[in-house]
Nucleic acid binder design. Structure first.
Lengths: 185, 185
DNA sequence: CTTGAAAGTTAATGCCAATAGCTTGTGCGC
DNA sequence: GCGCACAAGCTATTGGCATTAACTTTCAAG
């Protein structure tokens, strides 16, 4: 009986592979077990349940997004920073559409998931701080940004935009719309 | 063996009840069978599979939305119509959050689902036609409207907006943002 | 009154999550 | 080097679900 040398992190790695290939509804313990060369019940040594695994996957994805957004935004401010952020958002989802769809937006699942979500949120808030808005105004603007970006990419990746018009152009227009709504110093 | 007198429509009705109460992941044939007083395999006389049932549910929901949007928009034009439409969108999802979440945005599921989606789309396009945009510009604007409305309500209903700021205010601001992006005749 | 299709039924298969209880690697103290 | 405890595996089992097959019963048209 050779030992596979698993860990919670390794299980989540395998789960991400499964999600990338088969989508969130294909994420089963059987699939992860197959990929890690282990019998399905063995996974319970590293993960409490399928539900917990899903939460861990979501947490990883949100942290991945936050890392990228921070990297992309550093050194920019104002409209440049907002534009970079929104493009990075769309680019991430374009590269990993199934991962993005695997994030449970319902944060009541776990503490760590909430925290990862906050990291993403804080990038937005920090970028908007440069516009001299009150804290409350920044919150409203952040919500608009999230709604716009999330709405666009989730419709886009689900094939919901059927018409032939160029999607890059639509997204640029959406960014312009958002920028125009921000106060000018 | 008394006969239950089912039909495809009745099965979808029961499925909508299940979705309203337990959400889309609670939509099982067993649950629908229980609610209709029938054994699970009997449902196959009216529905090809669980997957088809989900598609039928989505189709019903989209048509329900289109009906409401048409009703709400009639008699208005311009900013009033856009405002009414966006409020109706949010109101519908607020009243039936689980139904809305049950719509598969992936339209490759069925012809009828695509058609129902088009009905919703056409309301948006018709409302925007009043601004004297080219067809192509109207498509881009419609996409922005959909992205904004869908993004907002889906984050909202999933509890993704954690901070205490008033959500009505954010949504009004989002509407203003969208209106400001439209050409003024 | 008969008959046949439609609407049900029960039985069975296979997949999956989850639990229980057993076996075996493996690092740690000695 | 030696044993021991725990961690990491395993097999077996249960229970829920979708789905199929093969049947029985209702019911309406002729």
């Amino acid at each position: 009986m050779p030992r596979a040398g698993l860990s919670t992190a390794a299980v989540v790695d395998a789960a991400l592979d499964v999600v990338d290939q088969q989508g969130i509804e294909g994420l089963t313990l059987a699939a992860v077990a197959g990929r890690t060369g282990v019998a399905p019940p063995s996974l319970y040594k590293h993960v409490r349940s399928l539900s917990e695994l899903r939460t861990l996957v979501g947490e990883r994805v949100l942290n991945e997004m936050a890392d990228r957004f921070i990297a992309v935004v550093i050194g920019y401010s104002g409209d440049d920073a907002v534009t970079a952020l929104m493009h990075a958002y769309r680019a991430y989802v374009g590269e990993h559409p199934r991962r993005y769809a695997a994030v449970p937006f319902d944060p009541l699942h776990s503490e760590a998931l909430v925290e990862a979500g906050q990291r993403v949120l804080n990038v937005c808030l920090a970028v908007l701080r440069g516009y001299g808005m009150s804290d409350s105004a920044a919150v409203h603007a952040t919500r608009c940004l999230r709604a716009l970006a999330h709405g666009f990419v989730s419709i886009e990746t689900n094939g919901g935009f059927g018409l032939p018009e160029d999607l890059d152009e639509t997204y640029d227009q959406a960014i312009q719309m958002f920028l125009a709504s921000l106060p000018r110093p």
